[in-house]
Nucleic acid binder design. Structure first.
Lengths: 356, 356
DNA sequence: GGGCGGATGTATAACGTTGTAAAAGCCGCC
DNA sequence: GGCGGCTTTTACAACGTTATACATCCGCCC
């Protein structure tokens, strides 16, 4: 059986609490005593029982991170960032995936999946404001991502409208005049709304068309959805000279269709994605993309959750992490594609802390 | 504060244990009593404290899954499979990433990262047999992946040698005569060894060259490593007519280099990857790949861990999950690339349970 | 030398749950 | 009516930890 404080105490000939004091680095322990106890700890191979500690302290040392899906590399990279940030605070992350389904998101937000957690970081897709309004759950919640809620929860995101505008501005600066948007989700009120808005605003500001025929709604947000949307646009007879996609997988799916139709990227059609996932760096044509500062998002999310532990209730705040537009071959201007070229950054890097 | 069994008991006018019995669906509770207690539970909104339950029962209901990295979509998809399989047994998964570094893997295998778990599923990269031999940790361990250990732990994997042979056989059947291997890790004894062996065996069996000049060792296993390896092969003056890569990201990195050098896939060089990640389906040239049955691997891993809980110690076993070779454009034969073509399966689907 | 205060160690009671054993209630039967 | 055998409920003791309050020790000052 596992060795407990009691065993160590017996072995060292001291009280249980003294051992506990050593384990917890309590200040008033003589060096001699500390060493003596430590020796017993080492000999017996004592390791604290976290369940007991949790019970006693009322905290578990774990936070949950609920993402739509792990298959999307953006979320996988984000998860890695959160895990690292949490580890820096001696916190463990419990990962959950909702599939972006409202039902699952609701379940998670109400704590049914994991009732062992001190806090929850949730990246919702379909969840509506009302779903969260009557959340009868005391576990602190921090929201992530593009959805825009008017609710008393911390929300970490990049400025999606500004980022989308930067992407479209870049396309316009290249001389593109007909910029299609791929990926506003079909039949949903909110998601992708901010990126569509940025797209529309920037085009309007430049006096360019932003009609509905240029927006391709989709059911999901994967490669296949991007490919389907691109197919639909072309089959409808439109020939945009630029694409702005909701995320990188959709952009990549769209580029495959363009390739198959014999359209050249970027000569015939320039493409910009969103998320800057590694996959986009290594296609036959590398992908220009909006690159959110994932490290910052992860760090800020963890800090926000932890700041609300133990009943502390700071004013809810919206935190903006940084982003930048990374230009690659899919939007190259006149110059020939150059292998090994440095990434160039463009556009604002607002709020949050500066990226490393 | 949160409501406990005691509060419910007081509210319902019964003993604590009776409430506990209701919560746990204990058999001998009269319907009347059950309803009365249930009503109090509902009114007060009672939810069990898992920390206390864990302390009492000695189990936590959590298993850890330690993977090299989440950024690789194969591992992300595998993680999703494990999470689902665990959920089916009311188990929660705690995800950890080791970066494939021996030090981290050692730490995880010895339970230093998370000491709250009932079991551990570990996918090692650098860990050596000796590292595990003197593991002084009572938490059940199940191994995943290509490494081949002679140790008393369950090991879930596909038959890497056979799978590699199937991939190379496919290339040979297409008439390819010079098949390079990308991705044997540099300076390591074991990893990728099985896939290299399968590659070598199949080539030898066909009387084709399998010399060291056709093997490109790499430091990592990402896109960039694949690209670098491909560059090195070409710069060394070799002109293989086929590539077998350790995994899909490396294959994709290699294909980008081929594209930049003006070599056509599959006409000049056919490419086969390993893992069948979604990303490979949507490149300009879609990627033929060995597709392990990730669902089965996840399910088998969870079942193996859970079977060892509570001191049960079944005979250690090696379990083989199924796989198949999915042909796509990167190895198309004479036919022109055909959009929307059905995936074709080739090769064995051994052991494990059949895939759905 | 008695008292005082800070530093150090200890006994005990929680935290919320479940297993054990015993008590209480119920039934039919002699 | 009492008794055995069942079902249902209860009391109590763990599980391993930490917080609280108290006991002890030491040196120091008046």
């Amino acid at each position: 059986m596992r060795v407990s404080l009691k065993d160590v105490a017996a072995h060292a000939g001291v009280s249980i609490k003294t051992v506990s004091n050593v384990v917890n680095n309590y200040q008033h322990v003589t060096p001699a005593m500390r060493e003596r106890v430590q020796r017993s700890i080492d000999v017996l191979g004592y390791r604290p029982n976290l369940a007991a500690r949790h019970l006693r302290k009322g905290r578990t040392g774990m936070i949950a991170l609920a993402l739509p899906e792990l298959g999307n590399p953006y979320f996988a990279e984000l998860a890695a960032a959160v895990i690292n940030a949490a580890a820096a605070h001696d916190y463990i992350v419990l990962l959950d995936h909702t599939g972006g389904r409202r039902e699952q998101e609701l379940l998670v937000s109400q704590g049914f999946r994991a009732r062992v957690i001190d806090g929850l970081i949730l990246s919702p897709i379909e969840l509506e404001t009302e779903d969260l309004r009557d959340r009868a759950e005391s576990v602190p919640l921090v929201l992530l991502g593009e959805r825009d809620y008017d609710l008393p929860y911390d929300h970490i995101a990049i400025d999606n409208v500004a980022a989308a505008r930067a992407a479209v501005r870049h396309l316009i600066a290249l001389g593109r005049r007909e910029v299609a948007f791929i990926g506003a989700r079909r039949g949903r009120s909110e998601p992708a709304q901010l990126r569509v808005r940025g797209w529309r605003e920037e085009l309007s500001a430049a006096g360019l068309p932003a009609d509905d025929g240029l927006v391709a709604a989709t059911d999901g947000w994967g490669h296949a959805d991007g490919a389907a949307a691109m197919t639909r646009i072309l089959d409808a007879g439109r020939r945009p000279d630029a694409i702005f996609a909701y995320n990188d997988p959709m952009a990549i799916g769209a580029m495959r269709v363009l390739h198959q139709r014999g359209l050249r990227v970027p000569e015939d059609i320039a493409v910009v994605g969103f998320d800057d996932v590694v996959e986009g760096h290594f296609g036959a044509v590398s992908l220009t993309s909006v690159s959110p500062d994932k490290e910052a998002i992860g760090r800020l999310a963890v800090e926000s959750v932890l700041a609300r532990l133990g009943g502390a209730a700071p004013e809810p705040r919206r935190v903006w992490a940084g982003y930048r537009l990374v230009e690659r071959e899919s939007t190259l201007g006149r110059e020939a594609p150059e292998h090994g070229a440095q990434d160039r950054s463009v556009g604002p890097r607002p709020a949050g802390r500066p990226a490393p």
